[in-house]
């Protein structure tokens, strides 16, 4: 009866901030760095997830990018480049798998 879904958990999402970034991107088409920071900062008032700082956020974004879970989308408006982030198909699937695994782990011990 004991199934386990630990192996379905994505190592990349071990970090709460990375998972948070994916959470924002899964709900929105594209998000700029500042919006991302604002949303995460104010959801995480008690500093439970992790310290949301510029450097911290940038390094976790880089990590997600290396795994091809998110992409940079550059838009040029009047010579001013505007960077925003979007989720890739791969990232969407990984995020879904991770959430499913989390939900199953919880359900397993609620029975």
């Amino acid at each position: 009866m004991e199934e386990n879904f630990i192996k379905d958990l994505d190592k990349v999402f071990d970090n709460r901030l990375r998972l948070g970034i994916m959470g924002v991107l899964s709900a929105r088409e594209s998000v700029s760095f500042n919006e991302l920071k604002e949303i995460l900062l104010h959801t995480d008032k008690n500093k439970e997830i992790t310290q949301v700082t510029d450097g911290n956020l940038a390094s976790h974004i880089k990590k997600l990018e290396e795994n091809q879970y998110i992409e940079i989308k550059k838009i040029h408006i009047n010579l001013k480049s505007n960077t925003s982030y979007v989720m890739t198909q791969k990232g969407r699937e990984a995020f879904k798998r991770h959430l499913n695994a989390l939900a199953r782990i919880i359900n397993q011990y609620n029975r």
Partner: peptide
């Protein structure tokens, strides 16, 4: 498990706050 529940709850909250 409690931690996992909290994790899932945080994610849902972040997704909600995003939109």
């Amino acid at each position: 498990t409690f931690e996992k529940i909290q994790e899932l709850r945080d994610i849902l909250k972040i997704m909600e706050r995003s939109v």
